[in-house]
Structure formats: structure tokens, C-alpha cells
Write a protein that binds this DNA or RNA. Structure first.
Lengths: 135, 135
DNA sequence: CTTGACCTGTGTCTTAGACACAGTCGTAAG
DNA sequence: CTTACGACTGTGTCTAAGACACAGGTCAAG
């Protein structure tokens, strides 16, 4: 199986497959004649796992650690549980940050509706952003 | 005014000031003797504006465009209004994405509570992530 | 003068792929 | 058979917004 074929089977892009190959997450066999990479069943299995973990927003580095544990025959489950908890906390922070920013932006748009456009002056590049509230 | 001093006055980091200097957003005067960068009042004004725009999550590239317009004496307000609308749309998308991911993670954690840790097998690296639902 | 703490500019690193590029394959026409 | 051409390939480079490492410079205390 070549790179684009594998990508299509698992519904991802060739660039993604190449990237995971490049950093050693999946190990293709090198065709000695043309240097093309060839992927076997195990590589496909591995890539499927990686893509599933990425859907949970696991980082590539985290996935690498998980695979390292599993490759040594040990359970990766505790590590996986730990990562997912951590990711949930981060996601909740992102969620709150996005919520707060949304409110700031909405308020700005609303405030600015009543304000005119102005040319910049020496000490005021854009009164919308800079001015707390105009005179 | 030197880099750390300016950073402290506007409550940011020296690395940030150096970065904006490096890409030409603010233009310090080079002290000829030791090569240190020196910032005047106008640079401080400019940095203050940049930091305010960053608080609205404007990208550095967008801020560069705004400054370019203002430096030519034209109103940057229409551009600013356009960017903030765009940013609001993006932020709402991020908000929804974070919300969806949060639900996925919460469900995963909940489902996994009743599942044991397992050693990897030839075709199952981690049953938590891989198994739709177990046998 | 010397020590040491702090400061400085420059160069490199970070994520997870996307994109550009030159070379290669496969196939269809001639 | 050759040729042409589109689709494919690996490798190298690029991204955002600073953070960090490092070698050298500055400054006040002793």
C-alpha cells in the first residue's frame, strides 16, 4: 500500500500519512527500487489508532508516548485516562476563553455602531480600539 | 527607554517587545555604542495600541495592515470593523468546537469508568480509544 | 579592579501538518 | 517501441507569536 492509498482508506490526507511516517509513528517499508514507502496491515492498524486519538484532540507527542508503552506490551490505559482528563480541563479553559472573547467582541461591535470613522492623529491611531470612550 | 523598561510600563514581556521590534511593528533607535535598542514616546504609543488590538485577538499580521493604513494618514476604522466581525465569527466557531469536544471527552471519561485496563494485543493498542464498544 | 546579578540582541525552537518542487509511475496514443 | 502527460512520490521549507538558550554587555557594591 502506498501513501495516498492508505490515506484514502482511512479518510485522511497523504501529507498527514507522510508526517506520521517522518516522525516515526508509523513505519513503512522502503521500496528499494524507487524509494517509495510501503505500508502493511500493521501500519494501517496503527494509523487508525492515531487518527482516533487525534479526534480526542490528543497531541501527536502524547500519542507517541502511548504507542511507546503499548509497544512494550504494557497497558496504556492509565496514561490514556490521565491524558483525557488533562485534555478536558484544557478544553474547558478554551471554552471559557472563547466565551469571554465572544462577549468582548460583541460589546465592541455594539459600542462602535454609534461611532464614526476618524483619521489617525499623532496620539490616536484608531479611536475605536484606543479610546476608552470618546470625548 | 530600553526594552525591559518599556515592557514593564505596558505590562508585557521583553520578548514580546523584541518580537514586535524584530518584525518592524515598532521602530526603536539603535544606540550606536552598545547596539541596545531605545524606545521613544511614539514607540510606546504604538506598542500600547498593538497590545490593545491583541486583546481583541487581532493577529499580528492584521495589526501590521492597520498600522500601515494609519501611517499613511488614512482611517483604519473600516478595516478594524471588518476584522472584528471576522474575528467574532471565528471565535464563535472555536466556541462551538470546544463545546463539542468537551462533550466528547466527558462522554469518553464516563464510558471508560466501567472499563478495566487491558494489555495491548496484536490488533488492539488500547481498547478505550479503539473499541467502539467491547465484546 | 572584580565580582555577581541583571540586562541585551540574535538565533533557534515550538504544532501538525500544508505547500512547493523536482523526480517517478503508469497508461494511453502514436 | 517511444512519447506524452497526468497523477503520484519524498524531501525541504513554511507557518504564529512569541519562549528560551546563549554569549556578551552593563551597573552597582565591595
Amino acid at each position: 500500500m502506498k501513501v495516498s492509498q492508505l490515506a484514502k482508506v482511512l479518510n485522511t490526507t497523504p501529507d498527514t500519512v507522510r508526517y506520521y511516517s517522518r516522525i516515526g509513528l508509523i513505519m513503512p517499508i522502503k521500496n528499494t527500487e524507487n524509494g517509495y514507502k510501503s505500508y502493511n496491515q500493521q501500519a494501517q492498524q496503527r494509523l487508525k489508532f492515531i487518527l482516533s486519538a487525534r479526534q480526542l484532540d490528543f497531541s501527536v507527542e502524547e500519542i507517541k508516548e502511548i504507542l511507546l508503552v503499548a509497544d512494550n506490551g504494557r497497558t496504556a490505559c492509565p496514561l490514556v485516562r490521565e491524558i483525557v482528563e488533562h485534555r478536558l480541563a484544557e478544553t474547558e479553559k478554551k471554552f471559557n476563553d472563547a466565551l469571554a472573547l465572544r462577549n468582548v467582541l460583541r460589546n465592541a461591535i455594539d459600542d462602535w455602531k454609534s461611532k464614526p470613522d476618524k483619521s489617525p492623529t499623532g496620539d490616536m491611531l484608531c479611536h475605536l480600539i484606543q479610546g476608552g470612550n470618546d470625548e
